[in-house]
Amino acid sequence: MERLWKLTEETGKHVLLIGLGLLTMIPIIWMISISLRSEQYVFSGHLVWTGPLHWENYVKALTEVPFFRWLGNSLRIGVIQTLGQVFIGVCAAFAFAYYRFPGRDILFLFVLMTMMIPMQVTLVPTYLIVNQLDALNTLTGVIVPHLASGFAIFLLRQSFISIPRELAEAAAIDGAGAFRLLWTVYIRMSGTILWTLGVIAFLSNFNEFNWPLLVLTDPELMPLPLAFQYFRTETQMDWGATMAIATLSMVPVLILYLVAQRYIVDGFAQSGLKG
């Protein structure tokens, strides 16, 4: 009897979760469904499209606009910015976690504060600085101002302080210098969190909209989130092609997410946010 009850309960939960899952997926289904319709049927009001599939929207998205160039820009921004953020984050987190020095806690508080302040607060002056560095309309101008990431420093520091100090001290007594310490103890023991940070930072850099919007004018330099609205003019919007490009822009994100899902989940569990 009890087993039956448990089975019913489990089934009920699955039904509920499947329902909610489908509800959550509606925008994604809708996006794909519109991307396969001809112009007349964009507004047919159906979620799922059962008519003839219009792959020409994808042909348009891949041939009429420089899709692969945009994808390349996004990947470039994503990879370089992420590597930079992780590198700078590891260095700073190591300093915060291993050393004791005057002003450390205040500095760390400062790092936390940089996370809290919306980027828009410093938007105008940052723009002017980037201009003075002659980096407007370059990928450098997109990447460099956000290389120091409060999130990266915070996450890594949380992970580093959870590493037993004795390990580091033992290594120091054995004569390990600062770099060896950082490498052999802290980095080696933070594999998961580094991957987690890498994946999360990459996704957010890859998807960033606001700052590139301001810095870049040249369509050839734009990342996908900026460029994919290319099929929109003053009075016209080609929804089919726009949704085709939207779907295509999701593909790299989806692949990475599928591959790295484990790191996102494990990383959250290890990031010092335990209950």
């Binding site: 309309n137 370059t138 990928l139 460099v144």
Partner: peptide, 19 residues
């Protein structure tokens, strides 16, 4: 490191920013 990403972007877009 800055120069590295600078050149990265230049390689990517040889035609970019004539301005």
């Amino acid at each position: 490191s800055l120069a590295a990403c600078g050149s990265g972007s230049n390689n990517a877009a040889p035609t970019a920013s004539p301005t």
